[in-house]
């Protein structure tokens, strides 16, 4: 039985829009609007969604890189959002992040030794004398050579830099790592290498990942469970197999139909949505997807659907936020393109 390592409840992240001469708040960008989920110890939960759906914001809010508007983030039994700045700094040892852009996420003026050494110094993880040995060990762990210890970031390739980023996160022995689009900036062959490295580390070090990505192929490769977001809300959450084989929410179906199939003889019925993603400043009422959903009815316009399951159709905690899971499944409702 696995326990929940991270529990997010009713997390909201609104960014104020200031306007007028007095600079008063005129509105909010509702980047993340009341989401709840949990990550079990040792698993990989992926958050997918298109640009601007709030997936990175969620990761940053959990880490308090941006202070969330409201909600609760419980990590290892402690509410992170109620911690003081100093307490939070200590907590950060257990919760690390790997960023998207390997060129921006490491200080160009520091050598690998300084980068990893600083991480250890900040959290005071080892006596000073043992740090060098540990830095070399970390470098070997992530697939860099020990002889590269005094090199600067500009002497490494993108993939190698990302490995430095991973080593930095590992330097403080975290329990959980948030991977914020961590392989999106790498080319495909390097992506595979880094993903396999992340997997290997997970096994060896018993890590938990919150994996944020827009790349469904990558998500399919690495996740245990997948969470789909649309415009700041969770639309569907399920284990990987259920989600990819048996998506229930019309948005998830659309998203999955966009995965290219490397076989020209297969005829795909790709679902093309009309219009653009509405603005998160004034999101649609009711179900946020109703403006683009081929099944939308008046009910969708008025009532915000809760995440719910259906024992006959969905297993293992598979939940979706749609009023018409059953009707769509039975064919009672037909899409209206």
């Amino acid at each position: 039985m696995t326990t929940d390592l991270l529990k997010v409840q009713h997390l909201k992240q609104y960014f104020p829009i200031k306007g007028g001469i007095l600079g008063r708040k005129v509105n909010d960008v509702k980047a993340v609007d009341d989401i709840s989920f949990e990550v079990k110890a040792g698993e990989t939960l992926s958050i997918v969604g298109e640009s601007g759906c709030g997936k990175s914001t969620t990761g940053r809010a959990i880490l308090r890189l941006d202070e969330p508007t409201s909600g609760e983030v419980e990590f290892g039994g402690k509410d992170l959002l109620s911690l003081s700045k100093a307490e939070m700094r200590k907590m950060r040892k257990d919760l690390q992040i790997i960023f998207q852009d390997p060129y921006a996420s490491i200080n160009p003026r520091q050598t690998v030794r300084q980068i990893l050494g600083e991480a250890m110094a900040i959290q005071n993880v080892l006596p000073k004398k043992e740090r060098e040995a540990r830095i070399k060990e970390l470098m070997t762990t992530v697939g860099l050579g020990e002889h590269q210890i005094d090199r600067f970031p500009h002497e490494f390739s993108g993939g190698q830099r990302q490995r430095i980023g991973i080593a930095r996160a590992l330097a403080v022995d975290p329990k959980m790592i948030i991977c914020d689009e961590s392989v999106s900036a790498l080319d495909v062959s390097i992506q595979a290498q880094v993903l396999n490295l992340l997997r290997k580390l997970q096994k060896e070090l018993d890590l938990t990942y919150l994996f944020i990505s827009h790349d469904l192929g990558v998500v399919r490769h690495i996740s245990d469970r997948v969470l789909v977001m649309y415009l700041g809300k969770i639309v569907e959450i399920a284990d990987k197999k259920s989600l990819f084989d048996n998506p229930k929410h019309p948005y998830t179906k659309t998203l999955l139909s966009a995965i290219p199939v490397p076989d020209p003889s297969i005829e795909k019925d790709q679902i093309i949505l009309k219009g653009d993603v509405p603005s998160p400043i004034d999101p649609p009422t009711g179900c946020r997807f109703h403006t683009r959903c081929p099944f939308a009815t008046d009910k969708c316009k008025d009532e915000d659907p809760e995440l719910r399951t259906n024992d006959d159709l969905m297993q293992d905690g598979h939940r979706a936020a749609c009023h018409y899971i059953e009707e769509i499944e039975s064919g009672e409702m037909q899409p209206n393109y």
């Binding site: 890189l65 700094r89 992040i97 960023f99 852009d101 921006a104 991480a119 900040i122 959290q123 403080v172």
Partner: peptide, 16 residues
């Protein structure tokens, strides 16, 4: 820049 976020996520103080 992301590396500032990275050291912040490591728990670095503002002065640092």
């Amino acid at each position: 820049l992301e590396y500032i976020d990275a050291v912040r996520a490591l728990g670095a103080s503002d002065t640092r």
